[in-house]
Amino acid sequence: MKKGFFIFCDESVKSDRYYSNFYGGSMIAKEDYEKINNLLVSKKQDIGMEDSELKWSNINAYRVDAYCEMMELYFNIIAQNIIKFRLMFTDNRFIPRNLTATHKQNEYHLLYYQFIKHSFGFSHINSDVLIDLELYFDTLPDKKEKNKKFKGFIHGLQYLPELEGANLQIKKESIYEVDSKKHIILQCSDVILGSMGFRLNNHHKDKPEGQYRRGKRTVAKEKVYRFINSKIRDIRPNFNIGVSTSVDGDPLNKFFHPYRHWLFTPSEHNYIPSSKNIK
Rank of each mutant, 00 (worst) to 15 (best):
M1H: 12
K2V: 08
K2S: 09
K2I: 04
K3Y: 13
F5K: 02
F6C: 12
D16L: 01
Y18D: 02
Y19F: 10
Y19M: 02
Y19V: 06
S20I: 01
S26V: 11
M27F: 00
I28Y: 00
I36K: 04
N38I: 15
I47C: 01
D51N: 09
W56P: 07
N58Q: 14
I59Y: 01
A61H: 11
A61V: 08
Y62R: 06
R63N: 11
D65H: 14
D65S: 13
C68G: 01
F75P: 03
Q80G: 10
I82T: 11
I83E: 01
M88N: 02
F94I: 13
I95S: 05
R97L: 11
T100C: 00
T100H: 00
H103D: 11
K104I: 03
K104L: 04
H109I: 08
Y112Q: 04
S119N: 13
F120A: 02
L130K: 12
L130G: 09
I131G: 13
L133W: 04
F137C: 13
T139E: 15
L140G: 06
D142S: 14
E145F: 14
N147C: 12
K151L: 07
G152R: 08
L157P: 00
L160M: 09
L163C: 01
G165F: 00
G165S: 04
N167I: 00
K171G: 11
E177S: 10
V178H: 00
D179Y: 04
S180L: 03
H183R: 13
D190V: 09
V191C: 05
V191L: 14
I192F: 15
G194Q: 09
S195C: 07
G197I: 07
G197S: 12
F198G: 09
H204M: 01
K205T: 15
K207F: 05
Q211E: 03
R213E: 11
R214L: 11
R217C: 05
E222M: 08
K223G: 01
V224K: 06
I228N: 04
I228V: 12
S230K: 13
S230W: 01
I232G: 03
R233Y: 13
D234K: 11
F239H: 06
V243M: 13
S244K: 04
T245I: 05
V247D: 14
L252S: 08
F255Y: 08
P258I: 12
P258E: 09
Y259W: 08
Y259A: 04
F264I: 05
Y271A: 07
Y271C: 06
S274C: 13
K276Q: 06
I278C: 15
